[in-house]
Structures are given as structure tokens and as C-alpha cells.
Design a protein around this nucleic acid. Sequence first.
DNA 1: GCAAAAATCCCTCTTTCCGGTGATTTTGCG
DNA 2: CGCAAAATCACCGGAAAGAGGGATTTTTGC
Lengths: 207, 207
Amino acid sequence: MIRVFIVDDHPVVIEGIHSLLQHEKDIEWVGHAMNAQSCLGYFVHNTADIILMDINLPDMNGVDLCAVIKEKYPGVFVLGLSTSNQGLYIKKMMENGASGYILKNSSREDVLKAIHAVADGCIYFSGEVGEALKQYQKSAPVALPAISRREREVLGLIAEGYTNPEIAEKLFVSQFTVDSHRKNLIAKLNVKNTAMLIRFAVEHKLV
Amino acid sequence: MIRVFIVDDHPVVIEGIHSLLQHEKDIEWVGHAMNAQSCLGYFVHNTADIILMDINLPDMNGVDLCAVIKEKYPGVFVLGLSTSNQGLYIKKMMENGASGYILKNSSREDVLKAIHAVADGCIYFSGEVGEALKQYQKSAPVALPAISRREREVLGLIAEGYTNPEIAEKLFVSQFTVDSHRKNLIAKLNVKNTAMLIRFAVEHKLV
DNA sequence: GCAAAAATCCCTCTTTCCGGTGATTTTGCG
DNA sequence: CGCAAAATCACCGGAAAGAGGGATTTTTGC
């Protein structure tokens, strides 16, 4: 018996999912909340196996709520639920411990599959969500300015905290050279300073 | 009818999966390869819906093979397959376009569930893999020195390329204050300078 | 209410960064 | 070979960061 709880500020969605699940023999509907606070309130004295969680809530966004839930009750699985198919939020929610993601307009089969997979400890994304996620993950490799081998080498050393003079010594070149590479990197990658350079590099897996 | 191809250098695994799938009515076994080259050779004149792909191959690792396949044949879904339950490789394989991951010692049900989910365009991880992936993703939050709210705020602005004076203006405080926060961050996180600070922050998802 | 933690502010000095503007030498490739 | 890109080196000057001292005032947690 899988106990399901839902958090969503749209009554229509709650009703929809409820009617979709109410005839399932292995699924028990334990309750719902329309905001993060009452959801957390419920879990003080009750529990569930799976929370279907909207990403847009009036008092707290789903990403943060997910983090709080997984922090307090690691055994409760969170299944993201949204109309908007946005890779960024999905990714963040997964990083905060969610077990999957489906769209509100998913088919009955999709919803049931997702619930069962998640209840088994698996991770599940419905098809369209998977597409969005892949697209988001692939945003990096496209249109990256060409960075030369030496520049990448310098970039790596900068990321490790070495200064221009230190890098110059390591590479047996003048510090002017290293400085040139650094400036070229900043120009090529269209960033303002070293901080942004490193952020860009790490996010795009250049280091 | 789901056409399944498998790449694995262990005959035992190929046989195992084969016998596991051969009585499934909606699954067609279209062939197998024991290394990356012959797998790529197969796809020159043939195709499949799903490739079950080992992560350890003699001539090329699964992560790279996955990238090549998805590059040449984006419509073919790759389902990772391994004995080793290593978060890092799983993550890399997913970044290269895989649609899921299962362990070789997964149950018959798990394998079939995964194949069907992936064939539907969904993303699927078997339970143990999900655990490993979460564990890997969660490697960050452990043993992180306590960073105050204000420090995190400053950290975010540094990562966006703002200088101390700029941040001071944004937050309506003195630049000395911002400088203090920056220094405290560098001290707390035990890094040498801003470059390392940002690298650490991005890698540990503080920004 | 009290102590600890956080947030705020201030100063000096040295080093590093960053922008701009050059140049020469080496290397990769058709 | 010859061209283009990469890699190298050089200087200036202002801005910012980093190391080292302090200090005070709010919050916040018991």
C-alpha cells in the first residue's frame, strides 16, 4: 500500500489526481495541502510514502520545500509535479533529493508508473520531462568559443588558486604571458573578471 | 515492438539478458556486440530502439560510446548497464544523453520496467542506482562549514562578477563590510583566493 | 537576560588583477 | 611554402583583492 500526499495550490489539480488515483487498490490517498506550511504541518504528526509536489506554491517554492522535506524526513519520496516543463527547476529539485518528475498533463499510465517506480526507490521522469532535462544538460557544449590547449591549462591552474606569477613559474614562462592568457580567456568567454571566469568554467565543465 | 541491442564484453551478461528477454512478446532481440567498434559497425546499416550498454568496454568506455551514439543516432535510446554502482560514471553517462541506468544484477522486473520506460522516452534508474546517484549528488552538503545568510548572499554576487564596491552599493553597506564577508568566506572554506572560492562554491552548489 | 554569533565598519600596505596596446616567435594545416 | 592561429613577451596605470590589524552594533539562541 503506497500512501500518497499531494501539495498543490490548484484545487483542480488536486481533484484531478485524486479521482485518478482513488480506484487504485495499492494506493492510499492520505491527504493534501495547498501550501508549503500546511504540508509541513501535516508531516509533524503524520507521514506518507510519496509526496506529489508542485513547483509553484504560494508561500515557498517546491525546490526549497523538497529540500526541507528530505532533510527532516529522508524516507519520504518526493515526485515533482508541474505544468511548466523547465529543465532548470527540475534539475534543482533533483539535486534537492527528489525522486522524479512528471507533468500535470501526463497520462494516467504515466502517473501510476511514476508512483510505482518511485515507491520502489527508483527514479522516474516522464517522457517530455526527460526531453527538457536532456536539453538543459546539453546547453553547455553548444557555442563554446574555442579555447586553446594552453589557455585551458592556465584556466585549470587559476581555478586551483594559483596567481599569475605562480602559474608563470610552474609553466616556465613569463608572468606577462600568463596574464595574456587570462585576459584572452576573460575576453573569449565574455565574462567580467576571474570570479565569473571560474564560475563559467566550472559550470561548463572546462575544469 | 521494442528492438533491443546490447554491448557488453561479458558473454555471461549477454546470455543472461538474452534469456531474460527472449520470451517477451513486445521485445525483439536485434543483436549484440562485445566492443564499441562492432557496436558502431552494426549501426552503420542497422538500427535499434534501445542499446543496453556496459560502462566497461575493451576498446572504448561506455561514457564515450554513449556520446558517439547519441551524436550519430539521436533517436536510439541508451540504457546504462553495469556491475559497478558508481555515481560518477552514471552521472557522466547521463550527461552524454543516456536515458537511464540499471545494474546487471537487477531483477527481471527491473530490467523490463527500465526498457519499457526508456522506450516510452522516459528516464529510469533502478533503485540501487538511484541511491548511488543521490549519494553522489549529496556529496556536497556534508561537513560544510557554516556559512551565514549574508555571506552566502555576498558569495552569490561575487560569483556573478561584481566587485566589492559594487556589492556594497547593491546591499547598502560599506565596502569594508563586503570585504570582511569575502575574507571570512575565504577563511571558512579554506581556500586561497576568490578563484578557488568560486570554484568551491560552484562545485558544492552554494551558488 | 546574557553570551555567542553575525553583521557591520575602519585603516594600511602589498600584491594581484584588468584594460589597453603593442610586439615577436612558434606551430598547425592546407 | 605560406597563412593563420596560437603562444610568447612587454609596458603602463588604475582598480581591486588579499593580509594584517582592529572595533562596534545587532541578532539570535538558549
